[in-house]
């Protein structure tokens, strides 16, 4: 981990680089690599938020991302979907986020009674249900998706001024990152982590475990919803394929590549994924077999470090600070494997 006194300087340096980058690289790179990585990073952050603080691996985050995207597409003027509303984009965005949180609370209320593999299966089921729902309900999703979704005017055109939407995504990313870090140290955030480590004790301490989990899932839905909204602002279109099983698995891969237990990992994982996804195609040996190549790289990272890239970084910095002794493992105790984002 970065020492406490270096955290702000390092954070500011990273943001400074992120601010300069779009003026250095091409418009294509800004849009297709940087902006896309930011959006996927926020989506992955919603997954890592639940995994690191709550010990929950959710496969429902792409579904919630889709709910937000389709909601925006239906509320504003677009080609396909419901054409009855024609709302202002900002109003549509707020409503879309509210709808996403409502759906998240509903799923959370059901899923919050489960843990581990059962939670994974329940959220996977919801992810698939949402995708199928939009696929069948063409009144909501158009035929083959909603296109030409209206964007906020002040961002100009995502094609002509790609840096504008990039900076919006950057600001939202920073807000999500700081928000999650702050949340982890609040009474609610600590209660959520307490439930991760020992739900029975939390009940005996007077906490309403189901309620806390449900609301926390709603917060995860809000983060996923932000990514979903940014995605349609950037892409101006969404289709059921956007939230199919494939993207769902890739989002999980992004979170695991980055490191499931550190919120920073979301954006690192997303950047690695997007770069690989773009560059691998031009490697002759890979060609159309991008998914296969990604899968192999994913396997290698997981085999090398169960904590993903952040895990590799942590084990190196630990070794640098403390020369290896025989007695490296912490003594006993449940849940010792989940440092979370709180232990700074």
């Amino acid at each position: 981990m970065i020492p406490a006194r270096l955290q702000w300087p390092v954070g500011i340096a990273v943001v400074a680089v992120a601010c300069v980058l779009p003026f250095v690289v091409s418009g294509f790179t800004t849009s297709q690599i940087l902006t896309r990585a930011m959006i996927l990073g926020i989506a992955a952050a919603s997954l890592i938020f639940l995994a690191s603080l709550g010990g929950w691996v959710s496969l429902g985050q792409t579904g919630l991302y889709g709910v937000a995207g389709f909601a925006v597409g239906n509320f504003v003027e677009a080609d396909g979907g419901s054409k009855t509303f024609g709302m202002n984009i900002w109003l549509a965005t707020i409503l879309a986020l509210l709808v996403t949180v409502a759906v998240g609370l509903l799923i959370g209320a059901i899923a919050s009674r489960s843990e581990g593999i059962y939670f994974l299966m329940i959220t996977l089921a919801f992810g698939v249900i949402i995708k199928l729902l939009f696929e069948k309900a063409t009144d909501l999703s158009g035929f083959g998706g909603i296109n030409q979704i209206v964007q906020p005017e002040i961002f100009g055109s995502a094609q002509l001024q790609p840096e504008r939407i990039y900076f919006v995504c950057l600001v939202v990313s920073i807000a999500v990152y700081l928000g999650v870090r702050y949340f982890a140290r609040t009474p609610f955030g600590l209660a959520f982590q307490g439930i991760r480590d020992n739900a029975t004790r939390m009940k005996a301490l007077g906490y309403n475990v189901t309620l806390i989990r449900t609301i926390a899932f709603g917060i995860g839905a809000l983060i996923a919803g932000l990514a979903g909204v940014l995605n349609v602002w950037w892409n101006t279109q969404i289709s059921p394929g956007t939230i199919d099983i494939g993207p769902l698995i890739f989002l999980l891969m992004i979170a695991i590549i980055g490191g499931l237990y550190r919120i920073e990992g979301a954006w690192i994982g997303a950047l690695i994924y997007v770069i690989l996804d773009n560059r691998l195609r031009s490697v002759e040996l890979v060609g159309e077999r991008v998914a296969t190549a990604l899968g192999i790289i994913f396997l290698l990272i997981v085999l090398l470090s169960p904590g993903g890239v952040m895990g590799i970084y942590e084990s190196i910095s630990r070794r640098v600070r403390r020369p290896p002794s025989g007695d490296d493992a912490p003594a006993g105790g449940e849940g010792a494997a989940a440092p979370g984002v709180a232990g700074d």
Binding site: R196, D197, R201, G335, A342, G343
Partner: peptide, 8 residues
């Protein structure tokens, strides 16, 4: 013991 192993 039922403690929160990930917290201080």
């Amino acid at each position: 013991s039922r403690l929160f192993g990930g917290l201080s």
